[in-house]
Design a protein around this nucleic acid. Structure first.
Lengths: 145, 145
DNA sequence: CCCGATTCATTCAGATGTGAAAACAATCCG
DNA sequence: CGGATTGTTTTCACATCTGAATGAATCGGG
């Protein structure tokens, strides 16, 4: 078993580096093929899978702070990707949903992400990729509940 | 085998979420116990392990763009953690090294990172944590050379 | 019914990233 | 020698995060 030493074994540092690498690659392809950024694609993915949601719900699922969600969604609204409306049941809340444009972009982004993910699975092997997904998922759940 | 569905299995999205979670936790402890941020700790770690380096070398090892390194190191210099000097061999380059203060901070940050990492190993199991490290390392190397 | 506590979103200031383009230094080569 | 090219860093404009403070709506116990 090769033990490569990039930055020792400090997972905290390594995961950020890896995330930057992947994110950069994803961002380029998402911009070209779907016209959205990587951050935006996460929101689009969520809305496409789960439908209209609160800002707070988006923040919880993506582990983003409230101000981060506000800014990200506002920029997406300016770009015509999503629509915001006050929650009629509880007017403190704000509901976000895909626009028609946004739905198209979300589907395009989804294809890009699926391709990228398939590439990763191939590069790493399905078994290892699976372990990584499980571990990261477990990690996220343990930190957020 | 439990297959949790946080955000399907799009590793590109999941790794960013996980990185945010870990980074946030690390940042709090690093600020309290070492007086530095998570980003700064990566640079300190590198300089402590490898000694004085070029800005470009730091960027390559941490997968950061040149402007990111310039900004990060400048803030660290303002904070008294590092010292910059022109490379006497090739005056295009800029060498960065730890200050006395920086060395202390680096050692403190190192202890924090070691503790955090030990906690992760315990939570995930050494074998799984090892797989994740190997996979992420492989990934980073394949993207950067 | 009302006021204090809670919840949700926004604003704010600042750290951290990016790509594009400018500023310089070194090197190549005709 | 000198102009073109290459390499390194910085500047710039902007997207993306964070915690802290604020505002707005709801809830719940008198």
């Amino acid at each position: 078993m090769v033990r490569v030493r990039t930055v020792d074994r400090r997972l905290f540092l390594l995961i950020e580096i890896a995330a930057r690498c992947l994110s950069r690659e994803a961002d380029v392809r998402l911009r070209v093929e779907a016209g959205v950024t990587a951050s935006q694609s996460a929101v689009l993915f969520l809305l496409l899978q789960r439908g209209e949601r609160r800002l707070s719900s988006i923040g919880a699922m993506l582990a983003l702070s409230a101000p981060a969600v506000t800014g990200l969604v506002n920029r997406m609204q300016s770009a015509g990707l999503v629509v915001k409306r006050k929650d009629p049941q509880d007017r403190r809340g704000v509901l976000v949903d895909l626009s028609e444009t946004g739905r198209g972009a979300a589907e395009a982004a989804n294809r890009v992400l699926r391709n990228l993910n398939a590439g990763l699975d191939e590069q790493l092997g399905e078994d290892k990729a699976g372990v990584v997904c499980d571990v990261l998922t477990q990690l996220v759940l343990s930190k957020n509940g």
